[in-house]
């Protein structure tokens, strides 16, 4: 795992900075033109979102610049915060206290140490097997059976989504791809760019063209126009970025489509959880976006699929 500043990674980052500059400009122009109350609210939110994107991009670029360890630490922190947001909103009982301590301070660090040490065999089963079995045992030992199955399942779900799934993003750096040695950071950047661009484009198409809602009960902001426009455009861009990956252009298109669909599924599932818990957002940490888990919901579902497709077909 080496720091990577080859020409391609700089081009990718340059493209992102260009898009952000465009976003800032659009925000400034709309700020002058839009006067209606409802429109103002959208513009204020848009500007907050773009500001946060600058911060997130800077943090991510800094993590990539340090090579493997920075990316592992960044995603480890994201997992920790996402798990914090998830468990805060999920009712647990007094008897789960020690179990939760293990989840936060033992399972999260171990999972990311396994990523850093590139120990694939244990990385792939640590949470689905060992943490999965440990959680109910520790809670049962605390002696409270009220809502036992629901409590246990919620903690396991939090670990799977916020920790296990997310950890597959930095795990891309452990893949040994012939002819693509030590360039795993670019794959991570590619995954994040395509999935987050898909979210942004779905938002842009939804705000400008969106009419017919897909799932009004689950995710009131998702429309057919926004979703198809966003996924279609992000898939096209994913294909056009094939030169940064070990994929052929057509394979890049297929893989980009797959992770965009997975990202859509992640957004829908985590929205369903939010509606179930009766909240709008998982948190307030990222201005304009909500919590960390609101921002990475699509990545949670896309990262493991992307990791395994690349691992199966390219290593």
């Amino acid at each position: 795992m080496n720091p990577l500043w080859d020409r391609e990674i700089l081009m990718l980052l340059g493209g992102v900075v260009g898009l952000l500059a465009l976003g800032t400009t659009v925000g400034l122009v709309l700020d002058r033109r839009v006067t209606s109350d409802a429109g103002r609210a959208v513009v204020v939110n848009l500007k907050a979102r773009v500001r946060s994107w600058w911060v997130m991009t800077a943090a991510f670029a800094a993590a990539l610049a340090t090579g493997g360890v920075g990316s592992v630490i960044l995603f480890g922190l994201l997992s920790f915060i996402a798990l914090r947001e998830f468990i805060t909103l999920t009712p647990t009982r007094r008897a789960d206290h020690r179990t939760l301590f293990w989840a936060f301070f033992v399972f999260v660090p171990i999972q990311y140490i396994l990523v850093y040490r590139e120990w694939y065999g244990l990385f792939a089963i640590f949470i689905p097997v060992y943490a999965f079995l440990f959680v109910p045992v520790r809670s049962a030992l605390a002696g409270d059976t009220e809502d036992f199955l629901a409590r246990t399942a919620k903690i396991q779900w939090g670990l799977m989504i916020a920790v296990y799934c997310v950890s597959h993003a930095p795990a891309l750096l452990m893949l040994q791809i012939p002819g693509y040695d030590g360039e795993g950071a670019k794959l991570l950047l590619y995954l994040v760019i395509v999935v987050q661009l898909s979210d942004v484009l779905q938002y842009v198409f939804g705000k400008t063209l969106g009419r017919r809602r897909i799932l009004p009960k689950v995710s009131p902001n998702k429309t057919w126009e926004g979703t198809l426009g966003g996924i279609g455009t992000a898939t096209l861009i994913g294909a056009l970025l094939w030169w940064a990956t070990p994929f052929s252009p057509w394979a890049a298109a297929a893989i980009a489509l797959l992770i965009n669909l997975a990202g859509f599924a992640g957004g829908v599932c985590l929205s369903a959880i939010k509606r179930d818990l009766g909240v709008k957002d998982f948190g307030t940490l990222i201005e304009g976006h909500g919590g960390v888990l609101d921002r990475i919901d699509s990545l949670c579902f896309a990262a493991p699929l992307f990791f395994h497709v690349v691992r199966y077909f390219y290593t």
Binding site: F80, R84, I87, T88, R94, H97, R98, F104, G283
Partner: peptide, 18 residues
């Protein structure tokens, strides 16, 4: 709100909820 979940009575290690 939630502080009894972060550090309940009788525990000495906090769980970092919000």
């Amino acid at each position: 709100e939630n502080l009894s979940r972060i550090l309940p009575k009788g525990e000495f290690l906090p769980v970092p909820l919000i």
